[in-house]
Simulated assay, not measured.
Amino acid sequence: MNWLKYRFLYFFISLAVLLPGIYSLWSFGLNPSVEFTGGSLLEISLESPSPDQIKDLLSPTYSIHSLDHDSSTITLKLDPLTQSQADQIVSDLKTLDSQAKLISFTSVGPSVGGQLFTKALTAILIAALATLLYIAYSFRNLTFGFFAIIAMLHDTLILLGSYSLLGHFFGFQTDLLIVTAILTTLSFSVHDTIVVFDRIRELKNKTTSSLYALSNRAITETITRSLNNSLTIIFMLLSLALLGGDSIKHFTIALLIGAITGTYSSTFTAVPLLVTWDTIRRK
């Protein structure tokens, strides 16, 4: 099948998904958690009071950055607090609901938050560089490594853009688990990309056909395997996103986005870019 006949359609689909996310990142940015900004995060079991009642009670004493409320819990993001201050907040809330109880309390100083952000960014850059060097060495061709990195960048931008939109409209926070999801997305992306690139290399050693023809054949021979492998992961993540607990839902959604984009980019971004570059280079 002539998959690459539609490569510009694949590029258009990528741009259609990338551009809203890039615009959101530029306009709204991400919604970082206290792990990056510094501050305290309190999750409190509380049923009856409304968010407005809680804000009216606590705002005169504490600086509230955000308040999320569902049927039985509230999540407060505030300036850094001590354990005694967190206990005092729970005591104050008991005037509204006698059954109020602290579920979890996390406090991170601003300097620690900055260090975590730097380390997270460093981890992503190291992973990308190591991937580039490994593929370039394995395939004895820097071009293969370069386009594998482009596909990884494509997937990372889609995930970050999606989380920017989700953070702006639905309050999703970017925390260390999302960094884990980004690194996992890189592995999704590069795994399938290497499978296709390796098949291209094998075919190249057996025939003198053009890279265009070899790439079409390589995609045809590997796409079923890639889809079967990826759909197994996607269905599992979809089940967790729909049925799993709130504590892992956002992380699971990030992994789900990464698994879908990684599956798409390995076949319909990395290979078309490689073939397009080869076509331009030969002119």
Rank of each mutant, 00 (worst) to 15 (best):
R7F: 05
F8I: 12
L18A: 15
P20T: 08
L25V: 06
S27T: 13
F28L: 09
L30V: 07
L41V: 10
I44N: 00
D52K: 15
K55C: 06
L57Y: 09
L57V: 14
T61S: 10
S63N: 15
S63T: 15
I64L: 15
T75V: 14
T75I: 13
L76F: 13
T82A: 11
S84H: 12
Q85V: 05
D87T: 08
D87L: 11
Q88M: 11
V90G: 10
D92E: 10
T95R: 09
L96P: 07
I103N: 04
V108H: 04
G114H: 06
I124F: 03
I126P: 05
L133K: 09
Y137K: 13
R140E: 15
N141R: 10
T143S: 14
T143W: 15
F144L: 09
G145H: 02
A151S: 15
I158L: 15
S162K: 08
T174N: 05
T174P: 12
L177C: 08
V179K: 02
T180I: 11
I182T: 02
V190N: 04
H191P: 05
D198C: 06
D198G: 13
K204R: 12
K206R: 09
T207Q: 05
T207V: 05
S209H: 12
S209W: 06
S209N: 12
S210D: 00
A213L: 09
R217P: 02
I219N: 01
E221M: 09
T224V: 08
T224A: 12
N229R: 11
L240D: 00
L240W: 00
L242G: 04
F251M: 02
I257H: 06
T263A: 05
Y264M: 03
T267Y: 06
T269S: 15
T269E: 06
V271E: 08
P272M: 06
T276V: 07
W277K: 03
T279S: 07
R281N: 05
R282Y: 13
K283F: 10
